[in-house]
Simulated assay, not measured.
Amino acid sequence: MTISYIGRDKYYYSVPFTYVGGRVKVIYKRSKVYIYASGRQVAVRIRSLSARRIYDY
């Protein structure tokens, strides 16, 4: 996994390497962040609203 900055939370979430530099759609829910590329879900991350952190799974 490679860490890429995404979204309005100003957090860092990891995505599979093949999607780095590409366009993704990010859907924010209360506790999770869903990341899609080409209409396919490529990652789900736990959303945190605490201090800025890097999330890598």
Rank of each mutant, 00 (worst) to 15 (best):
V20H: 15
T2P: 05
K25R: 13
Y5N: 09
K25T: 10
Y28G: 01
L49I: 11
T18P: 01
S4N: 07
I27F: 12
K10M: 10
S14P: 05
L49E: 08
Y19V: 04
I35R: 00
K29T: 15
V44Y: 06
V20E: 15
V42H: 02
Y13S: 01
G21F: 12
S48F: 05
S31D: 15
G39K: 04
I35M: 06
G7N: 03
R47S: 00
A37E: 03
R23Q: 09
R47I: 01
Y13E: 01
I35C: 03
K10V: 05
Y28R: 04
G22W: 06
S4M: 09
F17C: 09
T18D: 13
A51M: 12
Y13K: 01
A51R: 13
G7S: 05
T2E: 14
I35W: 01
Y55N: 02
A37S: 15
Y57Q: 06
R52K: 13
T2A: 13
T2I: 11
Y36P: 02
D56W: 11
I54A: 09
S50Y: 09
G7I: 02
V42P: 00
S14F: 10
A37K: 02
Y19F: 14
I3K: 12
Y19P: 00
S14A: 13
V24R: 02
Q41T: 07
Y19M: 05
T18L: 14
R30G: 14
G7D: 04
G22Q: 13
R40K: 15
S50T: 06
L49R: 14
Y36W: 14
Y55S: 03
S38N: 15
I46E: 10
Y57V: 07
R52G: 07
S48Y: 06
V33W: 00
K10R: 14
F17N: 13
T2D: 14
S14W: 12
P16F: 11
P16H: 09
V15G: 00
Y19T: 04
S31Q: 13
P16Q: 07
D56G: 05
K32T: 11
Y57L: 08
G7C: 08
V44T: 09
R30I: 09
R23F: 05
D9G: 02
A43C: 11
Y19Q: 06
L49Y: 10
Y5E: 08
Y13R: 01
K10T: 10
M1H: 12
P16A: 11
K32H: 12
K29M: 13
G7F: 05
Y34N: 01
T18W: 09
Y19I: 04
V42G: 01
I3V: 15
V24N: 04
Y13N: 00
Y57N: 06
Y12N: 05
R45F: 08
Y11A: 05
M1W: 09
Y55F: 14
V24S: 04
R30Y: 13
R45P: 02
R23A: 06
Q41H: 04
G39H: 08
G21R: 11
S38D: 15
R52E: 14
S31H: 14
A37I: 07
R30D: 14
S14Q: 06
K10P: 01
Y13I: 04
K29H: 15
Y36F: 15
F17S: 15
Y36I: 07
R8F: 11
K32I: 12
D9W: 02
V33E: 00
R23P: 00
V42I: 15
G7A: 08
I3S: 12
Y34Q: 03
G7V: 04
Y5Q: 06
Q41C: 13
Y57M: 05
Y12P: 00
Y5S: 08
I46H: 01
